[in-house]
Computed example of a mutant assay.
Amino acid sequence: MADTNYIKVFSGNFIYAQMIINRLEEVGIRAVVKDESESGRLAGFGSPIQGFQDIYVSEDELTKALPIVELANSDLKAQKNPE
């Protein structure tokens, strides 16, 4: 199996991360999620930031994933700052 490089495309709370993961999966991109608080919980340690997740995608899928993540980020900003 060839080595694959993953690049972080998003960091944020669980709800936003799940929304982005769903959008990526709709176009066939399988994201990797890193959740420090869950890893710490499973290992018996605590984490100061609960529900914070990082989303990574394969370098091969980065150009396809970035527009999806950017659109999701602008949707989130619009929800936070309605005019």
Rank of each mutant, 00 (worst) to 15 (best):
I21V: 14
G12K: 04
N22D: 09
I55T: 01
P82T: 03
A17N: 00
V57W: 04
A2L: 11
P48T: 04
G46P: 01
T63F: 14
Q79D: 09
S37C: 12
T63G: 00
Q50Y: 01
L24S: 03
K8C: 12
P67F: 04
Q18H: 14
G44S: 03
D3R: 02
I29C: 02
A65S: 09
L62Q: 03
G40M: 02
E25S: 09
L42Q: 13
Q50V: 15
I15A: 13
E61F: 10
L24V: 07
D54Y: 06
R30I: 07
N81T: 11
I68D: 01
S39T: 13
L42T: 05
G44R: 08
P48G: 06
I29P: 00
K77P: 01
G44W: 08
E61S: 15
A78L: 07
V9I: 12
N13T: 07
E59F: 00
V32C: 11
N13C: 04
L71I: 06
R30L: 08
A17E: 00
A2R: 15
G40H: 10
V69E: 01
D35F: 03
D35E: 11
N13R: 10
V9L: 00
Q79M: 15
E36H: 01
E26S: 07
L42P: 00
K64H: 02
Q50W: 10
T4A: 11
S58P: 07
M1P: 14
L24Q: 05
M19T: 07
K77V: 13
L76Y: 05
I7F: 00
K80E: 05
N5P: 03
K80N: 02
E70D: 13
G40A: 12
I21A: 06
Q79T: 12
D35P: 00
N22Y: 01
N73D: 12
I29V: 09
V57E: 03
A17K: 01
L62H: 06
F52R: 14
I21G: 05
D75L: 15
N73E: 13
I49T: 10
S47F: 12
E26P: 02
L42K: 14
A65T: 02
K34G: 04
V9A: 05
R30T: 08
K80Q: 03
V32F: 12
N81D: 13
E26G: 05
G46D: 11
V9R: 05
A72C: 10
F14D: 11
E25K: 08
F14L: 12
K8R: 12
F10Y: 00
Q79I: 08
R30G: 06
G40E: 04
L66H: 04
G46I: 12
L66Q: 02
E83Y: 07
Y6V: 06
S47Y: 03
I21E: 14
A17R: 06
E59V: 09
A31F: 09
E36T: 11
S11L: 06
